[in-house]
Amino acid sequence: MGIIKKTVDNDIKQQAEKTKKDAAEYGPSKYEQAFKKYDLNVDEKAVDEAVKKIIAEKVPENDNVEVKKFLLGSVELTSLHTTDTDESILAMTEKVNKFDNEYPALPHVAAICVYPRFTELVAQSLEVDGVEITNVTGNFPSSQSRMEVKVAETQLAIADGATNIDIVMPVGKFLSEDYEGVADDINELKEVCGDVPMKVILETCDLGSLSNVKKAAILSMYAGADYIKTSTGKEKAGATPEGVYVMCQAIKEYYDETGIQIGIKPAGGINTVMDAVVLYTIVKEVLGEKWLTNYWFRLGTSRLTNLLLSEITGKETKWF
């Protein structure tokens, strides 16, 4: 064991020395250069105050039926459980199929989000035009497998019929400040996805600060993300108003710099309709009307759908 540890330690030391040598020889990476275009030192107190102001002054005007209908159309109806079965996923898909007949005046959900094992089943069973099939790939939720495994899983998901892909940013690499490695992972999976939209999950609760949330957002967008997403829903916390506010700021600044529009998907911990209305309001106030479509604004949730339906219809509803 001592010999193995010594060998590993030497390899790590040699890699670190090579990285320093490359940096000295070739200068900062394109991602480090990109970072210099943005203010990555987020004032957390200022963010907290800005969010409180939005909630106090702007949320009440959005607490209405029309906004709740819009939110229903932005939901990615999600089932990512260890206990998922063919029968449970098929039942969820059938509810989406029958929804139009039961609620013809309401929008259908934006997507069904499942593990790749169920992609072909959903693709063969889904009958509603306009509902995407989202898959979590790339060794969700940890992103800790070999790159070959991540690539193969993503390729198979798309071959089976996935029309959206959600991956997790390699958080460990990010926390080790291996920004080149993070970007390479994201970029390689985006090449696999091609025209299929790819969302990068930042897992904001694990990043330690809002400054890191902004840095991770900028890095992911430059590396090829079509959307940035808050959370897997599998860690200690999910979407927060403050995290979404900072992500929206990053998207706006990136759009102003590049002209490229990036979508946003809050997910995890969206437990009430008011939670969703708050997030909607933040997106509206920071990013503006251009992002208020069911394409650019998504919500990853399972429980919210019935809660929205209940408030829209005025009676307790458990359709999904």
Rank of each mutant, 00 (worst) to 15 (best):
A225F: 08
I165K: 04
S231H: 08
R146M: 09
N306W: 04
A157K: 07
K199P: 00
E17K: 15
D48S: 15
Q261A: 12
F99R: 07
A225C: 09
M274Y: 15
G2S: 10
D43T: 12
M274G: 01
K214E: 01
H81M: 11
V182C: 12
V182T: 01
N139R: 03
Y280E: 12
D11E: 08
K95L: 08
N41G: 05
G238Q: 07
E148C: 06
G288N: 12
D195H: 01
V171S: 03
L308E: 00
K236Y: 01
V168Q: 06
L219E: 02
T78R: 07
K199D: 00
G161D: 09
V151K: 14
I54S: 09
I282S: 10
I54K: 09
K229A: 00
L80P: 12
K290V: 10
V200I: 06
G243V: 04
G243A: 14
T272W: 11
L126F: 14
Y26H: 14
K315H: 14
T137P: 09
E316D: 09
N187Q: 02
T154H: 05
K53E: 13
C113K: 11
P141Y: 14
K18Q: 12
G2N: 07
N187G: 02
Y179L: 08
E180S: 08
W296I: 03
E120C: 02
F297C: 02
D86Q: 13
E57I: 07
K215F: 11
G314D: 03
K21V: 03
N187A: 00
T154W: 11
F140N: 14
T305H: 14
V59N: 15
D195E: 04
A110F: 07
V149T: 13
N164Q: 13
G181A: 02
F140V: 12
A276N: 10
K315F: 08
P60G: 11
K173Q: 12
E17Y: 04
L126D: 12
K52Y: 05
I89H: 06
S125V: 06
L72K: 09
G73W: 12
D63P: 00
C248T: 08
N10C: 01
E191S: 04
S143D: 11
E44A: 14
Q124C: 02
K36N: 15
I228Y: 08
A237T: 11
S143K: 05
K98V: 00
M1I: 00
G243R: 03
E180Y: 01
E32L: 13
F35I: 05
L299G: 02
C205W: 01
R146E: 07
G181E: 00
E285P: 10
A239V: 08
G172I: 05
V273K: 03
V171N: 03
F70Y: 10
T83V: 07
D184K: 13
K215Q: 06
A223I: 09
V171L: 04
Y227C: 01
E180L: 11
L156Q: 14
L287R: 13
G233F: 04
A34Y: 04
G181M: 00
E242N: 13
E242P: 01
Y31T: 08
V283D: 11
L309K: 00
N271I: 05
W319E: 02
